[in-house]
């Protein structure tokens, strides 16, 4: 159809001149302006901010509410039912707004908030590491073809071929011990271990994606123009090429965040994740599955939280990607 780029661009100066208010603002401010117009994105952002704030302030909130994530509360349990929560809805009461954990009677709201801290910390730190390593390695591999690319390509293949979960379980005791030897508490050692392992096995996927993109970006004439003006490789990689990679990076990050939270849950379920008494959403999920038949509400608490956060991340990531693209929104389309 001829009404594509050529027409749009031919028409754009006229369109642009009527929107002179946009002239002279930076990409960040422009992106923010666009984001603000996107209602879904704003709601998602609100949800995420809320989750972050409550996670950060969890100790404060919990103490204000007079709760504790670690304290056992036998009074909330019904020994007649085999120490299941007393009362309906999983033991919901004024003392325990979301009910209590079966067997222990620990408060679920407090554990949910503390769990958010752990889950979010693991997922966000791991995904940040993945994004940094994957992007840098991918850009270098894609731009510097030849032996650099070959070596990077082979090592990513190697990592991708690793039976990741198996390795994780096998390495767990050794590595956590090493971390503990560095002076970390056992709980923290587990958390750091998870972050390291997720990052270590996660970056090759992103690196591959980025490398493919760079292979085609490299051939674009603006890269040659930069070479022709004498730009050093570093500048070409990070000033010319990197800004064009935000879309795949953001998409990948928003897709892998929920995967990482889920992976943490799975590992906790397998017993190599976060250890007692530290709560995490994954561990709560894993735990609740066992009681699903008798206390179904238990499953829905961490489940809903996970769903909301993951969904909000996806919506927000999508909107950020669109807003960062100078090609969207401002013109005809």
């Amino acid at each position: 159809m001829s009404l594509d780029t050529a027409d749009a661009s031919a028409a754009s100066p006229a369109a642009a001149s009527t929107e002179d208010t946009f002239a002279g603002i930076s990409l960040r401010r422009l992106a923010w302006r666009r984001l603000k117009r996107d209602k879904g994105a704003m709601i998602a952002m609100g949800v995420l901010i809320l989750v972050f704030v409550t996670a950060l302030l969890a100790p404060l909130i919990v103490s204000v509410l007079g709760l504790s994530p670690y304290d056992f509360d036998n009074s909330a349990l019904d020994p007649a039912l085999g120490s299941l929560p007393a009362g309906s809805w999983g033991g919901v009461s004024a003392d325990h707004p979301l009910g209590v954990e079966p067997l222990t009677g620990r408060d679920l709201l407090a554990r949910l908030l503390y769990g958010a801290r752990v889950s979010m910390f693991i997922a966000l730190t791991a995904v940040t590491l993945i994004a940094i390593i994957g992007t840098v390695v991918g850009i270098v591999a894609g731009y510097k073809s030849g032996w650099v690319d070959t070596i990077i390509g082979r090592s990513t293949d190697l990592l991708l071929a690793f039976p990741f979960i198996l390795m994780l379980i096998a390495l767990s005791p050794v590595l956590t011990q090493r971390l503990e030897a560095l002076g970390l508490s056992p709980e923290n050692a587990r958390i750091i271990y998870l972050v390291i392992v997720f990052a270590f096995f996660g970056w090759p996927y992103l690196a591959r994606l980025i490398r493919g993109q760079v292979l085609s970006l490299r051939e674009r004439e603006f890269v040659e123009a930069a070479v022709a003006s004498g730009a050093p490789t570093r500048r070409i990689l990070f000033k010319e090429i990197l800004p064009n990679l935000w879309a795949p990076i953001i998409v990948y990050v928003t897709i892998s965040l929920p995967t990482l939270i889920a992976a943490e849950a799975a590992l906790s379920y397998l017993g190599v994740g976060v250890i007692e008494p530290t709560p995490s959403w994954g561990k709560m999920l894993a735990d609740s599955v066992r009681y699903f038949a008798v206390v179904p509400t238990y499953l829905f608490i961490p489940g809903t939280a996970l769903f909301v956060v993951v969904y909000a991340f996806n919506v927000f990531g999508d909107a950020v990607r669109d807003a960062l693209d100078p090609r969207t929104g401002r013109n005809l389309r």
Binding site: T5, L27, R220, F222, A228, G230, P243, P326
Partner: peptide, 24 residues
């Protein structure tokens, strides 16, 4: 070559691919 680059320049064919879409 870098200092010489200011005297040797190039104009490209494709005005779409020759400008970085992410730069002003």
């Amino acid at each position: 070559m870098v200092p010489l680059r200011r005297e040797l320049q190039m104009i490209f064919q494709d005005p779409y691919s020759s400008l970085n879409p992410r730069h002003t």
